[in-house]
Design a protein around this nucleic acid. Structure first.
Length: 554
RNA sequence: GGGCUUGUGGCCUAGUCAGGAUAGGGCGUUAGCCUCCUAAGCUAAUGGUCGGGGGUUCAAAUCCCCCCAAGCCCGCCA
């Protein structure tokens, strides 16, 4: 309902003032919506803002005001306050399954996220990418946009050559029960150590990269084998995190099917393209001083060119291309966008997120300095199991295990998604293991609480007579859910949804403590139960979009 | 050295893109609340030169300039 009201009021303000920007914002504690357009008009009208606001409020009120929309001025502001009909309509909408969905839109979206190199397990830095990407994907789906999620798999880079070399030359045994990706990481770390001790190995690595690009079957088979092995481990972690990819795109395919050659062929014709030992692009017209290398002097392709071929393919097959990439890819990202513009292909929207580091410094798979996502998940799950056991000792162990798993993923995902992506963070075990307040479990708990009330209530006839301030505030928060989904998808900012879900849980908890539901009577009881039902559905939708299980009991 | 990003109470963080009503939360600390719908909860108290300095504006955490600090990037790595 909020979205509709916002557009409606924006329209009437525009009509009334003739201004293009009517400075309409959230009214905070003063109103549902507020406009400070009077300040802007003061200059031209040569009247004080408070008088303009009063005049405008009067005029708007006469033309558009009703029992359900109060329009009044407060100093220089024009405040809009919604009435009971708005609340009723909002709640009715919020009771429907899939609430928050927006009208279906056409246009296929492709969203790439995680895409970590298969040379080890995902660590706590990689999964920031995963959580941001998966949450965005879920938001797009709720917003009614057809979407495909892809993982771009680097199966022919230097790292893979190093792992493959390590398997052939170092006898590293798999530890009992060791996961594929963790085993690969040990080989990778050992091979890097070997290279450090004997730089001559680098030539062997270079050779491997050349023959794999030339199409040597044996080497391709070996590369593919280690990549597939590592990917199995990564997929397990992604599944544990509730992150879903529709397709894994193999980088080498773009060489094999000739797309890399084709894109180089197009680039070569550009005046910005230069060929000496290497083939490179001059992107100074885009403010990029750095040369964009497309082909090595030995004739092999570089990551950038293969990525370019991948993006041409995406541009041609989808209407909107979104990449979630680490801040270390900012330069290469802007080069990619510039290069695509030069050949007239649609560039991607790139969501960058800043780095996650450890208290002792930045993470490095090569040096074995990282906290793996698997270790994080198992530690948090263990703590969650203890908590569940402490709170619900009567539940069967199997049930407690299930709840603990959901709570753990909730804590991890929420802890990551709640922070805006442009903020670099330091991984903190204490925060990761906190299940209170601004956490996923806190929101799950509010949902479970609503479920519990509704279980005890039994059948009831829906009613919409809300009286207290706590009830109305809660209902008005519920009304904003579709608007939040719309904003997340438009601005590509999933942390807004995390904040919304927390606000909603806060308001519900306050309501829960201030206002009796089951112990109230008649139409009041039925109205409050209706409100609880709407909250439950909205929290459920919020949690699902955040990739968190909406538990009925915990 | 150049580029990008960040800097908000002891700690973490929202708000910054689209400047406006006393800068919101959380953790911590302190004081209350389970004969009452799940205390992973609620109610209060405490605590802020919005990194520093200029400027623009009726109005700046928000826009512009300079400086300081941290992270990232500046590979024929990915």
């Amino acid at each position: 309902m909020y979205l509709e009201k916002l557009h409606e009021i924006e329209g009437m303000l525009k009509a009334c003032t003739g201004e293009d920007d009517v400075h309409l914002t959230d009214g905070g504690e003063h109103a549902d919506l507020a406009s400070s357009v009077a300040f802007r008009l003061a200059k031209n009208l040569k009247k004080p803002p408070h008088q303009i606001a009063a005049d405008l409020a009067m005029e708007l009120s006469e033309n558009y005001g009703s029992d359900d929309l109060s329009i009044e001025s407060a100093g220089p502001y024009i405040n809009f306050i919604f009435g009971p009909e708005y609340v009723r309509a909002s709640l009715m909408a919020a009771l429907k399954a899939g609430y928050g969905a927006l009208p279906a839109r056409s246009g296929r979206v492709v969203l790439e996220h995680t895409s970590a190199n298969p040379n080890g397990p995902l660590h706590v830095g990689h999964i920031r990418n995963t959580v941001i990407g998966d949450t965005l994907a879920r938001a797009f789906r709720r917003a009614g946009m057809p979407l495909e999620v892809q993982y771009y798999l680097n199966d022919m880079g230097r790292q893979i050559a190093i792992v493959s070399w390590g398997f052939d030359h170092l006898s590293i045994e798999r530890s009992p029960g060791e996961k594929d990706d963790h085993y690969i990481a040990r080989v990778y770390i050992a091979a890097n150590a070997a290279i450090r001790d004997d730089p001559g190995i680098t030539a062997e690595i270079n050779h491997l990269m050349q023959v794999v690009e030339a199409g040597d079957d044996e080497t391709i088979r070996k590369f593919r084998q280690v990549v597939e092995m590592c990917l199995e481990g990564i997929k397990t972690t992604l599944t544990d995190l509730n992150a879903v990819h529709d397709r894994f795109v193999w980088e080498s395919d773009f060489i094999r099917i000739g797309d890399v050659s084709r894109v180089i062929g197009r680039m070569i014709r550009l005046p910005e393209c230069h060929e000496n030992e290497t083939l490179w692009l001059d992107l100074t017209e885009f403010g990029i001083e750095k040369e964009y290398i497309l082909r090595r002097s030995d004739g092999t392709s570089v990551y950038a060119t293969r990525d370019l071929a991948y993006h041409v393919w995406k541009a041609r097959n989808y209407d909107l291309v979104i990449d979630v990439l680490g801040a270390d890819h900012k330069l290469i990202g802007s080069q990619l966008i510039a290069a695509l513009k030069l050949i007239g292909e649609k560039p991607p929207e790139i969501v960058h997120f800043e780095f996650v580091s450890l208290p002792e410094g930045s993470m490095s798979t090569r040096q074995g300095k990282f906290v793996s996502a698997d270790d994080l998940i198992s530690e948090v799950t263990r703590k969650a199991f203890d908590e569940v056991t402490r709170r619900r000792p009567e539940l069967a162990e199997e049930e407690r295990t299930g709840i603990a798993r959901s709570v753990a993923i909730s804590a991890i995902r929420y802890d990551i998604v709640k922070v805006s992506p442009e903020k670099s963070t330091v991984f903190d075990w204490k925060e990761a293991l906190d299940f209170e307040r601004q956490s996923g479990p806190y929101i799950q708990y509010a949902h479970a609480r609503a479920c519990s009330i509704l279980r005890k209530a039994g059948e009831f006839e829906e009613a919409y007579e809300l009286m207290t301030g706590d009830e109305v505030r809660l209902a008005k928060c519920i009304a904003r859910f579709p608007y939040v989904i719309d904003t997340v998808v438009k601005d590509l900012r999933p942390h807004l949804l995390a904040g919304y879900a927390r606000d909603l849980a806060d308001l519900f908890n306050t309501f829960y403590h201030q206002v009796p539901v089951l112990k109230s009577e008649g139409v009041t009881r039925r109205s409050r139960l209706t409100l609880v039902k709407a909250v439950r559905n909205t929290l459920k939708g919020s949690l699902e979009t955040l990739g968190i299980d909406a538990l009925g009991s915990m």
